[in-house]
Design a protein around this nucleic acid. Sequence first.
DNA 1: AGTAAGGCGGGCA
DNA 2: GTGCCCGCCTTAC
Length: 114
Amino acid sequence: MNCPKIKSKNLSDFSSKVLAAVKKIPKGKVTTYKFLAQGIGCPAAVRAVGSALNKNPALIKIPCHRVVKSNGLIGNYRLGKRKKIFLLRREGIKIVGDRIENFRKILYRFKNKY
DNA sequence: AGTAAGGCGGGCA
DNA sequence: GTGCCCGCCTTAC
């Protein structure tokens, strides 16, 4: 595919974009795989986004736990869903079961669509 | 190089 | 609301 424009040595172009975008998510907010995909100009690559995050090279630096499903569910996480929930709660995000409360309100949307 | 699997989304029953 | 199925793009073997 040709969406990615930036080249990187260790990371694929795609991953680089994804990671860069994730870093922009403000603390206390969340975004979805879909918006993320849109944000990097590949709205159809939602799955690929997940893959990229799964191989997250800098798990700590990159707040991948702030990325959830578009239906408000937590979704999965490299270190386990449980851990993801823990991290989110620690940022003030409330979670009930597997669902985020006030999902709509704390949802972060990317400004630049491409 | 071919194939399977994955932190998903959307549509429909 | 749930569950199933198909499509999507990338990465790993």
